[in-house]
Design a protein around this nucleic acid. Structure first.
Lengths: 275, 275
DNA sequence: TGGCAGCGATACCCGGCCGGTATCGATAGC
DNA sequence: GCTATCGATACCGGCCGGGTATCGCTGCCA
């Protein structure tokens, strides 16, 4: 399997339309059809079920799509890392609006190290693990269990418990403590996007950043379970009730396996040093 | 970057010799030279330093070698998983000579599950993580920190402390407890092979399996630090002394990220259930 | 129900790239 | 200084990837 074949397959699998996929790839449709057919022939499995009106993924196709995305990410990452090996610089990915205190401490401590290189910050709206997988970043600050650390090396930095954030007029606002069972079925529980940007179905409001979420909560339209940090600087009219049995949120520093970068190793050492 | 280019590069980087690499790849040497030169040109970095007598890896080349090996493993794994999607069967990798009790319990419990599929066992002499990365296995039982779980999803199953195993005539054999400092510098500390099959330099005897190790220990030629399990059924004349500050050995079940297999999910659930 | 539009497959052609052979140029060792 | 070794270069041929034209199928609509 060549990466060209994987790129072509991913395009078709995502568009579910040979014409549009060919367009996106900047080639004509016939060679695309032929390449996919060859790939299927070599694998001995049908990847796409085509009627002349509709294209859909087979089960094998779904498996290959997931694998291919990850492989193409790894290839892009490999190119970037190879190219940048002699220009030591570090891109650190973190979720925008996350704990800036930890970040500041980390950057300060690392900058004081002998042999420290320049650290560029990549602040992501969501899913800070993605740039790590596609090679745009070298290290990331992630939050388990929210971010998937699959395929990454990880060191825990800090664990904190979670709180239910709600309007002070909410029926549960007066409680001293809640259990997950009390909140998990609330119809106003906010929903975050999945890694692919879509939302799982459900009754709660769809949110994509903290500001929007807090406005929704203030309006009594949403409730969310969040780690402790958000309690400081909580808006007027919002309360945080501890959820005693919610899983601890662990802030971790993550980097791709086989990282050979001295800078990454230093940063990780510094980070774990003061946790 | 095409996988063909990566395969060629890995061959040259491993052989450090264009002729032998071309031979291994089943092509002539000139096209290989050309392909590597094109790859270097596109990346804008030198991957190999060549004199007309000797080829060596540059730093960029070393980075790409690690990345490329992992990518090629992922590609092979993707092919196998895609091909086998409709033949549900599970390959479980484990270290031969490891705790067969846990394995038996796990296999029994899983077999009792509704929808269980046949589980094939792949018993590895060493490094059970390798078949997981190259797609020969779907799940593995690994032991942290011995096995690298980089790039895998992992659930811990069991943790145990470590013991120094030595001949009963050894000077330290009478001790009630040891510290790592007491054993780490012993000249007879056995050495295990690295993932590439080579041994790090050092004074201790080189071993590659448990039987051999125990014989060496019984002869007073070796000492080793090992997890608790090996205490049961220890040979006559061997003693196990607890090493109080040795890192705990954690038995984990590991699987590749993006595994879409129902069977893997079931097996993991069963495994974590009775830990 | 027949015409039509949309879409993937097929047929066929062209050019570039991959792989082959022959050879060169450099260098380490004798 | 000769020679063997090894990577680079030159050059050629065939295959394959990509293009255009067209076919065949099918759902839609008048």
């Amino acid at each position: 399997m060549e990466t060209r074949e994987l790129r072509y397959f991913v395009a078709v699998a995502e568009e579910l339309h040979f014409g549009r996929a060919a367009d996106r790839l900047g080639i004509a449709q016939p060679p695309l059809s032929r390449t996919i057919a060859q790939l299927e022939h070599r694998l001995g499995v049908a990847l796409l079920a085509r009627t002349s009106r509709r294209v859909s993924l087979t089960e094998a196709g779904a498996v290959l799509l997931a694998e291919a995305r990850s492989i193409l990410g790894a290839v892009a990452a490999a190119e970037r890392r190879t190219r940048n090996v002699d220009r030591p610089s570090l891109v650190l990915a973190a979720k925008a609006g996350g704990s800036s205190e930890l970040l500041a401490k980390l950057l300060d401590a690392y900058a004081a190290e002998p042999g420290a290189v320049a650290v560029d910050l990549l602040l992501c709206q969501a899913h800070a693990a993605q740039p790590l997988l596609d090679g745009r970043a070298d290290v990331a600050i992630l939050h388990e269990p929210f971010d998937s650390t699959a395929g990454l090396d990880v060191e825990p930095l800090h664990a904190e418990s979670q709180f239910a954030i709600m309007s002070s007029s909410h029926p549960l606002a007066g409680a001293a403590g809640l259990r997950m069972a009390d909140v998990i079925d609330l119809p106003e529980l906010a929903r975050w996007p999945e890694p692919d940007g879509t939302y799982l179905p459900g009754p709660g409001v769809e949110v994509h950043d903290l500001t929007q979420l807090f406005q929704m909560i203030a309006l009594g339209r949403a409730v969310a379970v969040m780690p402790e940090v958000v309690r400081v600087g909580l808006l007027e009219g919002l309360v945080a009730v501890p959820v005693v049995d919610a899983p601890k949120v662990t802030t971790v520093i993550a980097w791709p396996p086989h990282s050979r970068s001295r800078a990454v190793a230093d940063l990780v050492r510094v980070a774990t040093g003061f946790s």
